[in-house]
Every structure is written in structure tokens, then in C-alpha cells.
Computed example of a mutant assay.
Amino acid sequence: MGFFDLFKQSNINQGIEEYKRTDDAVLLDVRTPQEHQEGHIPESKNVPLQQLDNIASVAKNKDIPLFVYCYSGSRSRQATGILQRMGYSKVNNIGGIAAYSGKVEK
């Protein structure tokens, strides 16, 4: 990772496309349950940032690809670091749903 990668915004739309092409991947929404109920990306699993210790409920295997999003990209960036420290090896921060242009379900 180069210096300028720190400032690069994740593109959630590209991230969703990559998620769809990745076998056995989990799309992880780390927003609050209320935010998730108000609208989320189809197939996403909601494990709020403050409850990441419950991640095994959706991803027992630490080698499973995780695609993490939140509202703006800030909480998903935090979650990515936490998940990596927990031993998950394939964690991708895809950014915030605020920039998402696809279908949202409630």
C-alpha cells in the first residue's frame, strides 16, 4: 500500500461487483440495526461495529472473503482493522452506502 492509498476512497459500487464475483463471500453491513432496517444492500448481513465479536454468527471461517460497508466508509474502515486483528485474512472495506447507486431493500 502506497502513501496515496490512504486517501483513496473505496468505491462501493466496484466493491459490490467484486463481492458478486467472489465465491462464498459475505457482504457485511456494520451500521446499527436501525440503519440496516431503514435500507441495506440485498444479501448483506448486519453485524454492528460495536458487536463485531459476534462475527462468527455470519463468518465462522476466518478465510472467508468479507466485504464490509457502513454509511460513509468510516466505521467500515474501523471494522476492517478489528476483523484483521481477530484473524480474518480476506477483509475488504468497500466504503459507504451513501455512495451506492444500486438497489436497496428494507
Score class of each variant (00 low, 15 high):
1 M>T: 12
2 G>L: 04
3 F>I: 10
4 F>T: 01
6 L>T: 07
6 L>K: 14
7 F>M: 11
8 K>Y: 07
8 K>P: 04
8 K>V: 12
10 S>E: 14
10 S>D: 12
11 N>C: 05
12 I>A: 01
13 N>F: 06
15 G>L: 04
16 I>K: 02
18 E>L: 07
18 E>T: 04
18 E>N: 05
19 Y>I: 08
20 K>A: 12
21 R>G: 07
23 D>Q: 15
23 D>F: 03
24 D>S: 15
24 D>C: 09
25 A>D: 04
25 A>Y: 01
25 A>I: 04
31 R>I: 04
32 T>N: 10
34 Q>P: 02
34 Q>W: 07
34 Q>A: 14
37 Q>V: 07
37 Q>L: 11
38 E>S: 15
38 E>W: 08
38 E>P: 02
39 G>H: 08
39 G>P: 04
39 G>K: 07
41 I>A: 02
42 P>A: 12
42 P>V: 06
43 E>D: 14
43 E>I: 07
43 E>V: 11
44 S>I: 03
44 S>Q: 02
44 S>W: 00
44 S>M: 03
45 K>W: 03
46 N>F: 06
48 P>Q: 08
49 L>N: 06
49 L>V: 10
51 Q>C: 06
51 Q>E: 15
51 Q>P: 00
52 L>C: 07
53 D>F: 09
53 D>Y: 08
54 N>T: 06
54 N>K: 15
54 N>M: 09
57 S>H: 08
58 V>P: 05
59 A>E: 03
60 K>S: 14
62 K>T: 13
62 K>S: 06
63 D>T: 15
64 I>F: 02
67 F>H: 03
67 F>K: 02
70 C>I: 04
70 C>S: 11
72 S>K: 13
73 G>N: 13
73 G>H: 05
74 S>A: 12
78 Q>T: 10
78 Q>K: 08
79 A>R: 01
81 G>S: 14
81 G>M: 11
81 G>L: 11
82 I>P: 00
82 I>K: 05
82 I>F: 07
85 R>N: 14
85 R>M: 14
87 G>Q: 12
88 Y>S: 00
88 Y>Q: 01
88 Y>C: 00
89 S>Q: 15
89 S>H: 09
89 S>A: 14
91 V>E: 03
92 N>H: 13
93 N>F: 05
93 N>E: 09
93 N>T: 11
96 G>V: 07
97 I>T: 08
97 I>W: 00
102 G>D: 13
103 K>Y: 13
106 K>F: 11
